[in-house]
């Protein structure tokens, strides 16, 4: 059962790694850190592997199995911490709410063309997506 445990933990990590590797050449390393919501399936796979590891302790050769299990707990615990705690930003408060005017600006685009908020008003609605940059 310990082998099944290892297979589940390593296999889940491999699936994640393959997904990240597929996106990195196109989107950069930052894409690998992107999480769209909580990856419950990933976490279920990892902790399911740990649970199998715990179950395997009922059999023989407990000491090596315990070593493997501790390693799994460290890896899976780190991944879980990253998802729930490591990705939290510091507390802050938005300066605008729905219904407020969008702040004025005059900023250059990728071609050094100047854009101003005032220029939006007679035009279509606009969607602003703020990225962390450093691509």
């Amino acid at each position: 059962m310990i082998w099944l445990s290892i297979l589940l933990v390593v296999g889940t990590l491999a699936v994640v790694g393959a997904g990240v590797s597929a996106e990195v050449p196109r989107l950069g390393l930052g894409a690998g850190q992107l999480i769209l919501g909580v990856p419950w399936l990933l976490l279920a796979g990892l902790w399911g592997g740990v649970a199998l590891g715990v179950a395997s302790l009922r059999g023989s050769r407990r000491l090596p199995k315990l070593g493997v299990l501790l390693l799994e707990v460290a890896v899976v615990g780190s991944a879980t911490w990253y998802v729930f705690v490591g990705t939290l930003g510091p507390p802050h408060t938005l300066a605008v709410e729905v219904g407020d005017p969008f702040p004025a600006y005059a900023l250059a685009d990728q071609d050094d063309t100047l854009h101003q908020r005032a220029s939006l008003e007679p035009r279509s609605p606009a969607l602003y997506i703020f990225y962390r940059g450093h691509w």
Binding site: L34, I35, G99, F102, L120, E121, P122, P125, F130
Partner: peptide, 24 residues
């Protein structure tokens, strides 16, 4: 920036905001 998305209508008024406590 904290990851954020803001939808602004044709009059320059904020109509929708996405903002998460998570930086990812």
């Amino acid at each position: 920036a904290f990851p954020t998305a803001v939808l602004v209508d044709a009059g320059g008024v904020v109509r929708w905001i996405y903002h998460s406590g998570s930086i990812r």
